[in-house]
């Protein structure tokens, strides 16, 4: 054993930094190629990815995509119908609302809020959840029991009800919405990582690492984490969709970002009053939510199939 270790060390030392970088790069590139080859097979997943990418680009470049302002009322163009209806024009392709604001513009700016909250909440939740999941699964015992009871308790609260109540007590605003959603969101990656760790812990590579004297932290983050990453990515992607739906529901209930900042949920809520006549004011932003979340879910399922064959039915 020692002899082999010495040989291995020799090999590592003789490899220059440049060579090492090149080797890692080459491996990464081939991994990505392999992933793309598998992902591409699922046409719906490619479409889903394209939708998500389109919304992200639109959100980032919003001021360059549309000439209008999302918040300033324009009383000369109130409740204009979309371009395909009688009286519509290309000036306002999706029509305008009761204050004459361009709906297309507000949808694009609304994407900023939705995507921001979706990615930020899931990002933080993944970091917290993965860490706790690793600890919970790896150490087991008391700490695991405590974390699991906390998760059971949080599961009992309907997500939207808990988030609404929390935004209620914390007060509105972007930061508080993120906090209110994080309150429960971390349990999803945590549960997935924990169950994966329980499996990984019994694998030979962990045993091998332990035999050569690796510490707990090294085993958790260097040996196990890379192996549970695939399912974490899949779950987190799918969770972005759910979080966006939550944010939309919060703002529909009037507990989202403060007006007049456009958010999809509050646009639907505001347009509700005109559902009998100007149906587009409320339905089109809702359609934007549907498309985004559908895109994310399609992407997530594609990722699952490409990254984690064992998760396939």
């Amino acid at each position: 054993m020692d002899k082999y270790l010495a040989r291995a060390e020799e090999f590592v030392i003789t490899e220059t930094l440049q060579q090492k970088l090149l080797r890692v790069l080459r491996r990464t590139v081939s991994n990505i190629q392999e992933f793309w080859r598998l992902y591409r097979k699922n046409h719906l997943a490619v479409i889903g990815g394209a939708i998500v990418l389109a919304f992200i680009l639109l959100a980032i470049f919003a001021p360059w995509v549309t000439p209008h302002d999302p918040v300033t009322p324009n009383f000369r163009a109130i409740r204009k119908p979309p371009v395909w209806m009688k009286g519509g024009s290309w000036t306002h392709p999706l029509g305008t609302d009761h204050l004459g604001r361009d709906i297309w513009t507000r949808i694009i700016y609304g994407a900023r809020v939705s995507l921001f909250i979706g990615f930020v909440v899931v990002g933080f939740a993944t970091v917290i959840g993965v860490t706790l999941g690793l600890i919970s699964g790896y150490y087991g015992g008391k700490i695991d029991a405590v974390i699991q009871r906390v998760i059971d308790t949080l599961l009992a609260f309907p997500y939207l009800i808990l988030a609404t109540a929390l935004v209620g007590v914390l007060g509105p605003g972007l930061r508080n919405i993120v906090l209110a959603l994080l309150y429960k969101e971390w349990i999803y990656p945590c549960r997935v990582v924990r169950s994966e760790v329980l499996v990984a812990k019994e694998q030979e590579y962990v045993e091998a690492a332990r035999t050569v004297g690796a510490g707990n932290r090294h085993i958790m983050f260097r040996e196990i984490l890379p192996n549970v990453l695939a399912s974490t990515v899949v779950v987190s992607t799918l969770r972005v969709g759910s979080v966006i739906l939550m944010e939309a529901s919060l703002s529909f209930l009037g507990l989202g970002v403060e007006p007049p900042t456009p958010a999809w949920g509050s646009m639907v809520a505001e347009g509700r009053r005109f559902i009998n006549t100007e149906w587009w004011v409320s339905t089109l932003p809702g359609l934007a939510i549907l498309l985004t979340v559908l895109g994310i879910n399609l992407m997530g399922e594609g990722l699952r199939d490409a990254l984690d064959p064992k998760l396939r039915e």
Partner: peptide, 13 residues
């Protein structure tokens, strides 16, 4: 999949 991607308030409306 559309069903789970759909905001409920939008479906209701």
């Amino acid at each position: 999949l559309v069903g789970i991607s759909m905001p409920q308030f939008w479906l209701g409306l």
